[in-house]
């Protein structure tokens, strides 16, 4: 059994990506990975807080790191936005001593201290590097051969880095897809931006980016896309209909969390993995793999 401190983040814990959380926990359990949720964690602050009040955002994020440090384990998150913010806090506190002094002062008010020792990691990193693709392949129970999958990495898991994968041409998720018995399709835009939270304030801008991504995935022959981030999944799945309307396109490509694909390969059911929560239905695509 391997133990980690788990930081689900708001979307995965209580928002629209709950299926990411439940599938992540189910798959982890099957792989003898124990994700112990950090008690009373708060929102990481995400990019929005960083952009209006830097010191407050660092303190917000540092509170989580201070709590995690008491446990002495790696801090694992399935959310790329949480991943980039918590990692960034670590590097800022190292790089700027005067800033660190202020964060220390603020944390002290809450009887907390942070010594900078927590390693922040993305859930995908745990699976492909700590568990390994061979081990994962040995747990495969359902034959997914022939299923064409586009691996979407997005931005904030691999950039700005240092990361466990290449910042512009990452491979880890493609290798994982192959270990699961499915086929990773060519996807030149696999590490390009989905627009992130700009989908809320500047929808047109984000829809344009999503359109390019969907086009690239479909052109590569993919039947579905898998993602490593709740926001990427939302943008590609929930807003796919609005892309179709705006650009007169006809995309109908399901967007799964990578943990859902893992669960499918390991023999878990559609309901158990929350796959029916996808707005673009994956039912038809999966029909040939799922025993009725």
């Amino acid at each position: 059994m391997r133990y980690y401190t788990y930081f689900p983040g708001c979307s995965v814990s209580h928002g629209g990506a709950k299926a990411y959380g439940s599938s992540a926990l189910a798959v982890s359990k099957a792989l003898d990975v124990e994700l112990v949720e950090l008690e009373d964690w708060n929102c990481c602050g995400s990019t929005p807080y960083t952009s209006v009040d830097e010191l407050a955002s660092l303190c917000t994020s540092a509170r989580n790191l201070a709590l995690a440090e008491k446990r002495g384990l790696d801090l694992v998150t399935p959310c790329s936005a949480c991943h980039v913010i918590l990692s960034r806090t670590n590097s800022y506190l190292k790089e700027y001593p005067e800033l660190r002094a202020k964060v220390d002062d603020a944390l002290a008010v809450g009887d907390l201290e942070y010594h900078g020792t927590v390693r922040v990691r993305h859930l995908l990193d745990i699976f492909v590097n700590d568990i390994g693709n061979d081990e994962i392949a040995s747990r495969v129970k359902r034959d997914l051969s022939g299923l064409k999958v586009a691996a979407y990495y997005g931005c904030q898991m691999v950039r700005p880095g240092p990361s466990f994968d290449h910042p512009e041409s990452p491979q880890s998720l493609d290798r994982l897809i192959e270990s699961l018995g499915a086929e990773a399709t060519p996807f030149p835009l696999k590490a390009r931006c989905c627009g992130g939270s700009l989908i809320i304030s500047e929808e047109d801008v984000a829809l344009g980016l999503i359109n390019k991504l969907l086009d690239s995935a479909v052109a590569g022959g993919a039947e579905c896309i898998i993602t490593v981030c709740p926001l990427c999944q939302t943008n590609l799945d929930v807003y796919q209909g609005r892309v179709n309307k705006k650009f007169k396109t006809h995309y109908n490509i399901p967007v799964l969390f990578f943990t859902q694909l893992m669960g499918l390969a390991m023999g878990m059911g559609i309901k158990e993995l929350g796959i029916e929560k996808g707005i673009v239905s994956a039912e038809k695509m999966l029909a040939r793999y799922i025993e009725r």
Binding site: C10, S13, H14, G15, G16, A17, K18, D40, N42, D53, L55, A56, C59, T60, R63, K102, V103, D105, A106, L107, V109, G110, D111, L112, V238, G241, E276, K277, G278, I279
Partner: peptide
């Protein structure tokens, strides 16, 4: 659509009151 797919929860996640107070004290100090 989100509601139909069980992807919209209106209820917010709340921290324990003392944790919420701790965070706010830290941010006020900041």
């Amino acid at each position: 659509t989100l509601l139909k797919h069980g992807r919209m929860s209106v209820k917010a996640r709340r921290l324990k009151p003392e944790a919420e107070r701790q965070l706010r004290a830290i941010l006020d100090k900041a």
